[in-house]
């Protein structure tokens, strides 16, 4: 099988985000970059599928500036066979990214499954998988928890709003966006880390893929940090008075009721 995983490099979860001086983005100095955690589930799922199907190949693709090659190396160390770097600007939006990824995937001889994480943990947009699928005219299963594979189709359990699940069948080729709980991503073994360092990463420029900044649909104008978290409040008194006070607070301060 020809298995693909599209991954995004994002700031580490512990990063304290600072805005860029003109507030059109974030200040990336000193940031530690990681593979977006949902994408790790996608990589793991791809590797497990490959291990069950001899002769399969897993190729990871990342779009972004030069630094995202590190994320590709991480995926190679986990066990991916090949890596493709789609070199586009840091500021690329979901559509621009999806179009670039789709163009890169279309250059491949045969694509059976494309995995994504259900969303990246930085912008949390959750759009790239669907957009890529649409641009490639492929079926797409998002927020997938559990997938059964057969020769020409998949059956996926996906999470829907309200804590419910639904089962979806789709024919190959298919795009699958992974939800947490799909698996436990592996820790790269040292021999694989060593091998990953030496592997070649194929690179595409915008011109190779026929994309350009004209494909950018979103312009970022003014980023703001969320207001700092307020300390918690303890509502005192017996159950009746406390309940009354709580309702009052929810109404006047939190303004949720």
């Amino acid at each position: 099988m020809n298995i693909y995983v599209c991954i995004k490099q994002v700031p580490d979860t512990e990063t304290k985000i600072k805005l860029s001086p003109d507030s059109t983005g974030i200040d990336t100095t000193g940031i530690k970059w990681i593979v977006s955690p949902y994408d790790e589930f996608a990589i793991e799922e791809a590797l497990r599928l490959k291990e069950k199907n001899a002769g399969s190949l897993v190729t990871v693709i990342a779009a972004g500036p030069a630094r995202v090659v590190e994320a590709l190396r991480t995926a190679l160390a986990m066990g991916a066979d090949n890596a493709i770097h789609v070199e586009i600007a840091e500021t690329a939006d979901n559509f621009f990214t999806a179009k670039s990824l789709a163009a890169a995937l279309k250059k491949e001889a045969k694509v059976d499954i494309v995995y994504f994480g259900k969303e990246a943990i930085d912008d949390g947009a959750g759009q790239t998988a669907q957009l890529t699928a649409a641009l490639m005219d492929l079926p797409c299963v998002t927020v997938a928890l559990n997938v059964e594979y057969s020769a020409d189709k998949i059956k996926a359990k996906r999470e829907v709003e309200g804590g419910a699940f639904e089962m979806i069948e789709a024919t190959l080729p298919v795009v699958i966006a992974a939800q947490k709980g799909m698996n436990e991503p592996r820790y790269a073994s040292l021999p694989n880390i060593m091998k990953a360092k030496k592997k070649e990463v194929k690179a595409y420029k915008e011109s190779d893929l026929g994309v350009s900044s004209a494909d950018q649909k979103i312009k970022l104008k003014n980023f703001q940090l969320p207001p700092p978290k307020q300390p918690g409040k303890k509502v005192e008194g017996d159950a009746a008075t406390a309940a009354k006070a709580l309702v009052q607070l929810l109404h006047t301060e939190a303004k949720v009721i």
Partner: peptide
């Protein structure tokens, strides 16, 4: 232990805190 390794790799501490802090 996996998250401990990852914390040490990215933030240089076994606890989940930012290196910057």
């Amino acid at each position: 232990v996996q998250s401990v390794f990852k914390n040490m790799e990215t933030n240089g501490t076994p606890w989940a805190f930012a290196a910057a802090e």
